[in-house]
Design a protein around this nucleic acid. Structure first.
Lengths: 218, 218
DNA sequence: TTGCGATTCAAACAACTGTTTCATATGGTC
DNA sequence: GACCATATGAAACAGTTGTTTGAATCGCAA
């Protein structure tokens, strides 16, 4: 074991397994619905492991939220590797792609989208830190893109509303997933081809709307 | 008491109060979070009243969902009083207004939006009947409007995606309410003026996008 | 009043929850 | 080997949950 002052125990075994098991179960059943016993069982750990490693169910939950969100953001950066001075429409496309990819969880944890949807419908103490560290700055970047596309004379309210329209079209697909699955006209976006089609549509729809909004202003 | 065969007890007192108290608490804390004891307390009824009148917490929940949704739909019809052959843009405007009004709950129960958001994030047995009786037919009507605006040559997939874009822009404002309240750039839509501004924006944004999509197709 | 079904009430029940406790094991250092 | 912090384990605790029970009360017809 390492020295006590530098870092937490850094256990790569039980702690890690509890973290992912908790993520899956929290996403599936919610903070209240997922029991500590079920988490420990899935992780192959003892019941007391949760309290030992995280100090309680509530703190385990915020740790799951923070780590999974940070990991998803690292895997799918909102700028998509584009330079900051790339054309606004390109940056918009990268933003939409990143948001949809993170929602679907193309990397390892495919449950981050549901976790996020639950957190928004039923906010806990974790939402403050998430908005402050992740969603807030990200939305600010989107505001910049939209502002550039709407032109310098666009009022701040119009920019904010248009940015909301963009993110809403992305969030919808995993927010309303249970409903979408029951509507014959809509196909859920679980495979990457459907995600790509949705991304193209959202970008095209929003670009047309933004262009129209730009020319409508005198 | 009325005859037993015609209708359920039709108690205008306790049963009704339990129903609205349950709606408020389910909306605030969710199906699991709202306890039968708290519901009975708020309703001024005995703990056993829930089981006596509804036969259990689960059945009380679906009854709350069904009645509140039906009531909201009756108060804000999706056609907004327009004739079926009114111009499509007019019907789109009426649809958006109705959806936002129902979400905000301008009538009596202001908690229906949150209830619905919870149900989508954490679907229960109530969601099947809701989609079948309410959301499904409503979405079909929107599909008709969008199809008319996109033109007869628009493929079904494009129509469905565009309709999804319209509803998503409305749902966003009460789906992501806890996040919106924490973003300084966005104002929550709790008053009717903000709702009206959002409705105007959604209609303008979508109309511009649909017009662009129409002309882009060859 | 008497009878009777519908309703309300207080109390208890059984199951499940997160957490704590204390004993045991483990792995490395002296 | 002895020591000690770290980690795991089984059991129990205290609180809350939805539901049930059986007695008490109400409303009203005969």
């Amino acid at each position: 074991m390492r020295s006590k002052s530098t870092a937490p125990p850094a256990d790569e075994g039980t702690r890690e397994r509890v973290l992912t098991a908790a993520g899956e179960l929290f996403a599936e059943h919610g903070l209240r619905g997922a029991t500590v016993r079920a988490i420990a069982l899935r992780a192959g750990a003892n019941l007391a492991a949760v309290n030992y490693h995280f100090g309680g169910k509530a703190r385990l939950y915020v740790e799951v939220m923070r780590s999974s969100f940070a990991e998803a953001l690292a895997r799918h950066p909102t700028d998509g590797g584009l330079a900051a001075d790339a054309p606004a429409p390109e940056r918009l496309r990268a933003f939409v792609r990143s948001l949809l990819a993170r929602a679907r969880g193309v990397g390892r944890p495919a449950w981050q989208g549901r976790l996020m949807a639950r957190e928004m419908a039923d906010p806990s103490a974790a939402i403050d830190v998430m908005v402050r560290e992740g969603i807030g700055p990200e939305f600010e970047r989107l505001l910049g893109i939209v502002r550039e596309m709407l032109g310098p004379r666009a009022p701040a309210d119009a920019v904010a509303l248009a940015a909301a329209s963009v993110v809403s079209q992305c969030l919808f697909w995993f927010f309303a997933e249970p409903v979408i699955a029951r509507l014959p006209a809509l196909k859920p976006f679980r495979d990457s081809a459907a995600t790509e089609a949705i991304a193209r549509h959202v970008v095209a729809f929003s670009r047309a709307a933004l262009a129209g909004g730009r020319e409508r202003r005198r």
